[in-house]
């Protein structure tokens, strides 16, 4: 993580067009990719739950999606800062990535609402799992929809032929990506361990009472 910060801030050459603001790219894109990865992991665990019926996958799926939502929110925030730095506005509908994350953010907030409203048990686990699977189907479908919507919402305002990344930029990007993924994994394990401890404690308390 530290190495990633050093590389991103000091080593990678500045982008000629965007200057210092471009450096947030090294945070924004890895965070976004990690969020996708977490949502994917949550859906995979959900699929395992539905196929095996083992309840432990419910918690794993929930924690993965929780992490995904945290990283998704971070993507929105870093993306918003980037938009402010490069275009002078906090929000722009012309960034497909940002719009997609807004849709996903709404979707996964609804996922948490669903979980809170159904009583704990196998039914909640299965309903949440089904909704999580809808989520991974929604990601490509929404992406396609947002691309299509450009057609009538803002016909080609920005042509983005991004500059090619140089060797050091690419290296910095990869290190940042690995660092963020590791961070997500550690957070995932920590939250999972915490939640499992909670459940074990509750069962223990019931058993003794």
């Amino acid at each position: 993580m530290g190495l990633a910060v050093v590389l991103a801030l000091l080593v990678a050459p500045e982008d000629a067009d965007q200057g210092i603001s471009q450096r947030i790219f090294y945070l924004h894109v890895p965070v976004a990719l990690t969020a996708y990865f977490c949502f994917g992991l949550g859906a995979w665990k959900a699929l395992r739950l539905l196929s095996t019926g083992e309840q432990r996958y419910d918690l794993e799926s929930y924690v993965a999606i929780h992490q995904g939502t945290i990283f998704g929110s971070l993507t929105l925030i870093t993306g918003s800062i980037w938009a402010k730095a490069s275009w002078g506005v906090w929000w722009t509908w012309s960034s497909n990535q940002l719009v997609l994350f807004l849709v996903l953010f709404l979707f996964y907030c609804a996922y948490f609402m669903l979980r809170f409203s159904i009583e704990d048990g196998p039914r909640r686990a299965r309903s949440s799992a089904v909704y999580a699977l809808f989520g991974v189907a929604l990601i490509p479908v929404s992406f396609l929809a947002i691309r299509l919507a450009e057609d009538f919402i803002h016909p080609t305002v920005f042509t983005r032929e991004g500059p090619q990344m140089t060797g050091t930029m690419f290296l910095a990007f990869c290190v940042a990506w690995v660092a963020v993924t590791l961070l997500a994994y550690v957070l995932y394990r920590v939250e999972l361990a915490g939640k499992r401890l909670d459940i074990a404690l509750r069962e223990l308390r019931e058993a003794t009472s």
């Binding site: 709404l106 609804a110 669903l114 909704y131 809808f134 396609l144 929809a145």
Partner: peptide
């Protein structure tokens, strides 16, 4: 539940 899925 429905609205995010209805956007596309």
């Amino acid at each position: 539940l429905v609205l995010p899925l209805a956007i596309p």
